[in-house]
Amino acid sequence: MPARLRFILIRTASLIGLLWVLATVMFILQEISGQDPVAATIGATASPEAIAAARERFGLDDPMLVRYVSFLGGLLVGDLGLSFRTRRPVMEDLMAYMPATLELVLFGFVLALILGVVFAVSSMLRWPGASVFRGILFVGSTIPTFLVGILGLIIFYRNFGLFPSRGRGSSPDGPTGFYTVDALVTGQFDLLTEALHHMVMPAVALALAPALAIGRVLRSSLMETYGQDYIRTADAKGMRGTSVLFRHVLRNSVNAALSMGALQLGFMLGGVLVVEEVFSWGGMGSYLGASLNVADFPAVAGVTLVLGAVYVVANTAADILQSMADPRIAVS
């Protein structure tokens, strides 16, 4: 079996194992949470007959092992249980809130990658004014994410009125729930501009710290690669610095940055919940906040499982991309 294929299969098996561990932990927490699904669903004042019928319907009288197998089986078909608060399937709720969160995370992650690359490359090529940019990025990344958001609201909304303070803007007609995608596909460019306008401040607040982390790792890798003999040979042949950097150095320096990028994506999935609360974004953070207030464990567990799964998948994808960028990883 080719080394790269074996590496991909091993990482895929690890992915499945991690998802199983995450699901098992959530099941155990559900069992020890002390929350009574029957009381939360039909009310604590229901008749004994109604309570007994509900317990049988939910399978609560079955042995724990049977409930565990049923829980895992439900996850395989997207059944995350019934929300105590909304009385709807958790997956149905998440499908309504998830596009807002994913759109913000994706835009924030792309922005973090761009800022990180600019940080690293400007350090190597010493562009005019690059030190100012790096200083701003460094200061911004050391401030807690929620405080960055609040400062952005004070400066750019209240004082200058440059950006809106809350929400995602007007909802365009479209099937995805991603306002930018739906507006672009349907040709509603005014709504596309509005959606991007609303996204600037929360995306920047979410991207600053990951951008610095990615940029630092990439800069260290670039400096190490610049010390290699083949780079000295390229310099000796008279190749321009930008040509050497983009044609020879970057590809051999991205592995560590890819790993850091996947790690920062996981941090962003946690930070986005706070950013959504600051900017009233209307995504999974809002759903989680409302569910925590009423101890809606199925909803909380559903958000945790979905975000955890995205994080694990992202890290696996990063490992596979690394093996493609550097074949030596597949045989190590």
Rank of each mutant, 00 (worst) to 15 (best):
A3I: 03
A3K: 11
F7V: 03
R11L: 00
R11C: 04
A13F: 11
A13N: 06
L15A: 07
V21K: 08
T24F: 09
T24L: 12
Q30K: 05
E31V: 09
Q35P: 05
D36H: 03
P37E: 06
P37F: 09
A40G: 14
I42L: 04
E49H: 13
A54C: 13
E56T: 15
E56H: 13
R57V: 02
R57L: 13
D61C: 09
D61E: 10
R67A: 06
V69Y: 05
S70P: 02
F71W: 11
V77I: 11
G78N: 09
D79R: 03
L80I: 00
L82R: 11
R87G: 03
P89M: 09
V90Y: 01
M91Q: 05
L94Q: 01
P99N: 02
T101I: 07
L102Y: 12
E103I: 06
V105K: 07
G108F: 08
G108E: 04
A112Y: 00
G116F: 02
V118E: 08
V121R: 01
P128K: 12
G129W: 09
A130G: 11
A130T: 08
V132A: 11
R134M: 02
I136W: 01
L137F: 04
I143R: 01
F146A: 09
G149T: 02
G149K: 07
F156C: 00
Y157C: 04
F160M: 12
G161A: 04
G161R: 01
L162N: 04
S165F: 00
G167M: 08
G167W: 08
G167C: 04
G167E: 01
S170E: 14
S171L: 15
P172I: 03
D173P: 12
D173C: 03
G174F: 10
T180F: 08
A183L: 07
L184W: 13
L184M: 15
V185I: 15
T186E: 15
D190G: 15
L192T: 06
L196N: 09
M199S: 15
V200P: 06
A205S: 15
A205R: 01
L206A: 09
L212V: 13
G215W: 02
G215M: 08
R216I: 03
V217H: 02
L218G: 01
S220V: 08
S220W: 06
E224P: 02
T225G: 01
T225F: 03
D235M: 14
A236K: 04
S243M: 00
S243K: 02
F246K: 13
L250P: 01
L250F: 15
N252K: 12
S253T: 11
N255M: 13
L258Q: 07
L258M: 06
L258P: 00
F267V: 14
G270I: 03
G271S: 10
L273R: 04
E277K: 15
V278L: 04
S280E: 12
W281F: 07
G282L: 10
G285P: 03
Y287F: 15
G289I: 01
S291G: 10
L292D: 04
V294L: 05
V294T: 06
V300M: 09
V306W: 06
A309S: 15
V310P: 07
I320D: 05
M324I: 15
M324N: 10
A325T: 10
A325C: 11
R328V: 08
S332G: 15
S332P: 11
